[in-house]
Design a protein around this nucleic acid. Structure first.
Length: 116
RNA sequence: UGAGAAGGACAGGCGGCCGCUGGAGGGCAGAUGCCCUCUGGAGGAAAGUCCGGGCUCCGCAGGGCAGGGUGCUGGGUAAUACCCAGUGGGGGCGACCCCAGGAAAGUGCCACAGAAAAGAGACCGCCGGGGGAAACCCCGGUAAGGGUGAAACGGUGAGGUAAGAGCUCACCGCGUCCCCGGGUGACCGGGGACGGCACGGCAAACCCCACCCGGAGCAAGACCGAAUAGGAGAGCGCUCCCCCGGAAGGGGGAUAAGGGUGGCCCGCCCGAUGCUCUCGGGUCAGGUCGCUUGAGGCCGGGGGAAACCCUGGUCCCAGAGAAAUGGCCGCCACGCGGGGGACUCCCCGCGGACAGAACCCGGCUUAUGUCCUUCUCAGGAC
RNA sequence: CGGGGCGUGGCGCAGCCUGGCAGCGCACUUGCCUUGGGAGCAAGGGGUCGCCGGUUCAAAUCCGGCCGCCCCGA
């Protein structure tokens, strides 16, 4: 029985090559605050990588954004199809203080890959 | 009560569920893994990277020049530009705060204004003499007065004089030197001699003096594995000696070209089918270690005026790597707003700053919420 | 981690080393010229010199400390 809500290193993109691959080959979807890249692949895991550039804010702001996005992915990954890599690039953070805001916007952007 | 001055403390708490990550133990698989339990998991600034060290490497870092830094005195320290205590000067009614080598080594600068901006001089003026009818002009003396400026070559009084002037004198101020006393010292107190005053400001201008500084930085550095290439061009140099050996050859030494030693010079070191430069190609932002026990925290005892030091006991207290410390909820405190009820209670809503470790420490600086202590001044009441 | 540069009218820049007046081009306003516009000519307005302290009689300039932007090297 695999964990349903965990998010270990296995489910995260950890190398620049993986980020580059998803961004170059994946499908691109833009939302008000994010740019999402999704790449289908063979093995059934769902992995995520989050990128918050230096222009977004100070370290506290960037870390906060990453944590909220990680949490949103962790709680909702079961709703997605199997076998895909996701990269989230944060464009700006204005008006995104609450967890529920992040969750809603992420799910909205990932609508095409949700399980029926 | 208001306005201030100095210093200190904390960084909401408890619980539940879902997660992340380091360590220990156990289980499954036994090949990298997976699961369970216990336990640890951001800061006072983790920040800026402005100083100082530790640590690591660099062909041990020696001398001189250059360069950079610091700058009252004494102490503390691994070290400092930091800290403590003191000295002198300045600011403030005060609590307190701020500043700090040398301008009688040299060079330079001091706009405008002003006669003159640093060792020279005189615009107006004052005085004397001469000329002229007069206005005034010429020569000489003078630096008290006027005016300018941020700054004008001591101040007051008296004598003196044609008018004046430290020109002379008294007092005050100033400088240099000497003596006595106190202090480790910066310096302080007292006395004397000399100088009529020659010593304007700026060294965050060049500079002088004293002291300090080798260079890089955990992407340091060590190990393991994988991959690519054993390339092209240019420059310089291809010498001598010794040992082993029958020889092929091997070993050692001295040099050359050239290179290294932060820059330059010396010195030192490396250096023979060699060295250097350029081009081209390749390489994983691979893994493990470094990596957290340290000038360490806490509780005592002792020394010291303090910073701090000595000493006994006790504790182990973050170690990631697209980078862990998060999300949701409840309750209790706290603040603010509103309402009810009324004299200290209930309900609802909102809010909790600055900010996230990246090799580790000691400081500095900057950002920031709340609370506390001591002190000063002003007003009022008793 | 280490190093360098920039910040001055609306825009692009000089002035900073060697302290004293903030200047140049474009743009803007007004007038002339033109039938009108452009061009040209002549006048004119506009700057907390990124911010806060300090040195100095005097700071865009010198010295500290902050802030923002940009660029290198490992």
């Amino acid at each position: 029985m695999p964990r349903r809500f965990g998010l270990s290193k296995k489910e995260r993109l950890r190398h620049p090559r993986e980020f580059q691959l998803v961004i170059r080959r994946g499908e691109r979807v833009a939302t008000p605050h994010f740019v999402l890249f999704v790449l289908k692949k063979e093995d059934p895991t769902r992995r995520v990588g989050i990128s918050v550039g230096r222009k977004i804010g100070k370290a506290v702001v960037r870390n906060r954004m990453k944590r909220l996005l990680k949490e949103a992915f962790r709680l909702n990954k079961e709703k997605l199809q199997e076998g895909l890599d996701l990269v989230v690039i944060v464009r700006r953070t204005e008006g995104l203080e609450k967890m529920e805001d992040v969750e809603r916007e992420l799910l909205e952007g990932l609508r095409p890959w949700r399980v029926a």
